[in-house]
Simulated assay, not measured.
Amino acid sequence: VKDYRPHTEGQQLRILLHGPAGAGKSSFINSVQSVVRGRMYAHALVDNTSGDSFTTKYQTYKIQKGNPETFYPFVFSDIMGLERTSGVLVSDVILAMKGHVKDGYGFDLESKLSEQDGFYNRSPNLNDQVHVLVCVVPADTLAQMPEEVVKKIRNIRKEARDLGIPQVALITKVDLACPEVKKDLKNIYKSKYMKEKFSVNVGIPMNCIFPVKSYHEEIDLDDDMDSLILSTMRHIINLGDDCINFRSHSDQQEF
């Protein structure tokens, strides 16, 4: 993860996280930053009380590497969560995948981002476009996920397919859903039930679904948690790098 370098100078790999409100998108971003920087980090704000989405704006997170002016060549884009009757609009997620949404855009629950809005990026470049779409879902409420949210995830997935964007899923909070995992994180791969259920519901292949435990209540880094996070990031980076290489060797897509 630390040694990753895109083949093209100045290229950055953009990872877009989406999923139900409260799934742990911001927590995963913080966890990756904590692991690669070697200390607990909380750049992306997280809420522990509300069932609604705490993230309300489109936000890009860079990870500092070495001196303050140097960053890793991959970035995370965090968005508002999907909800049954509200939350981020599917149309805005699609615009974000195409690179049309500028940082700081406050999501409107009633209408999608307009081309006349100052936060609309009319001419997205390869760095603005998304190279990996990551769906984040919580294990402890996976069985109760509303059908409306599942449908939104499917629609986003179909659009990403048409755009040639590779997709993975993260199943978070596995320790809250499985006592055996809570007892020993190494048991996280023993049960395939949650992966199988989510794969059937939305169509993401089993080998692209990763159970993880993000840092939440811990105050020190843990080797087992780090291993899961870094293994997942390695797969995400590999998929994103393939996407970058494909786009750079083909005609620029019409967005």
Results as ranks from 00 to 15, higher is better:
4 Y>P: 00
9 E>N: 12
19 G>W: 00
20 P>Y: 04
20 P>W: 08
23 A>H: 00
25 K>M: 02
25 K>D: 01
32 V>R: 02
33 Q>S: 14
37 R>A: 05
37 R>L: 04
40 M>G: 09
42 A>R: 09
47 D>Y: 04
51 G>E: 14
52 D>C: 14
53 S>M: 04
60 T>N: 15
61 Y>E: 10
64 Q>V: 09
65 K>W: 05
69 E>H: 03
71 F>N: 06
72 Y>T: 05
73 P>K: 03
76 F>G: 02
82 L>P: 00
84 R>M: 05
94 I>R: 04
94 I>G: 02
97 M>P: 02
104 G>V: 11
104 G>F: 07
106 G>P: 06
107 F>C: 02
113 L>G: 01
118 G>C: 11
119 F>N: 13
123 S>G: 14
126 L>H: 05
127 N>L: 06
130 V>L: 05
132 V>D: 01
143 A>M: 14
144 Q>C: 14
148 E>L: 10
150 V>W: 06
152 K>Y: 00
154 R>H: 08
158 K>V: 12
161 R>S: 14
162 D>P: 01
166 P>M: 05
169 A>M: 09
170 L>G: 01
171 I>D: 03
171 I>E: 03
175 D>L: 07
175 D>T: 06
181 V>M: 09
182 K>A: 15
186 K>Q: 10
187 N>R: 08
192 K>G: 15
196 E>P: 07
198 F>G: 08
200 V>N: 15
201 N>C: 13
202 V>Y: 12
209 I>F: 07
213 K>V: 07
215 Y>C: 09
215 Y>L: 08
217 E>A: 14
221 L>W: 00
223 D>I: 10
228 L>W: 05
229 I>H: 08
233 M>V: 04
234 R>P: 03
237 I>P: 01
242 D>P: 01
243 C>P: 01
243 C>E: 04
243 C>I: 08
244 I>E: 06
247 R>I: 08
250 S>W: 06
250 S>I: 04
253 Q>T: 12
